[in-house]
Amino acid sequence: MRPDFYDFRLWLLIGAVLLLAAAFAAPRWTLMRDGYDVLVIVDVTGSMNTRDYSAEGRPVSRLEFVKSALREAIADLPCPSRVALGVFSERRPFLLFEPIDACANYAPLEGSIAALDWRMAWEGDSHIAAGLFRAIDMARELNADLMFLTDGQEAPPLPASGGPPFEGRRGEVRGLIVGVGGYELSPIPKYDDNGREVGFLRVDDVPHENRFGLPPRGAEEREGYNARNAPFGAAAAVGVEHLSSVREPYLQSLAATTGLEYAHLVDAPRLVKSYTDAATARPRRAEFDLRPSLGAAAGVLLFALYAAPTHFKLPSVRKPWRKRTATAQPWRRK
């Protein structure tokens, strides 16, 4: 009564027994997995209503597109990830809630994202640089990375002297500025006091030049210039501020100043990819159930035990034994 150690089916069986024993003895395995902590700030100012994205063949507004992309992207973040949500308008972000576990609380998180609306904006202005810098401060306080979704349209336009200076440390907070909107200029919908859409913004609805601070260089050349009474010239500036497209170079320059990354919003998978490339992965404990894999492997080995060819033997290394078996099988010598 001696087992044939050259019978590889014996080893299949031993393997299956070991796998099953392991699955029974240590069913779970704690391992470190990369999660992300993200503060998502969504621009809800008027220009985000521009319908220059399309979904299922219909034009959708930037804000709607951002919402659907965010819902998908957050669902795709690896599981121990935490998400905080805020909106941006005027010159600051407004935090709706502090970071919550996105996997355990996906339902309310999705509800909050679905409820994002341009009507949340407490003021019509959109000082993006100022809002971004404060959002960076907020992300640092929350110990999270930043995802700032905006079309980059400053309203009113920045003064000739440029935007506000960045006072934080460059690169201290990591994250992503997401440029939202098409590259072509599109009209911005206009709403009345009751929130009903009434056509589009026209040229004379918005200021095209910021007249705070010092006039730009060369203003003396303008028609009707008067150093005291009309330092910006007599004629109102006319530009394309009533139309909107994603201001990519501006957002890229903001990204360069603050040490964030920049990406254009195309779809959710690319958003997740750009974000995970730009953000800090935070290793967290995650429990991993080993039983499905170990049990399945044992099942496969056991099946192979029956399905395998019966005459296959492992190559022998111990010659003398082979010799002895040969002598013990006299009928084979015939």
């Binding site: 709706l96 609380n105 909050s112 409820a115 407490w122």
Partner: peptide
């Protein structure tokens, strides 16, 4: 303006 922060939930 009013803002919905989190919808009704048992979370």
């Amino acid at each position: 303006q009013p803002m919905l922060v989190t919808p009704l939930s048992d979370h």
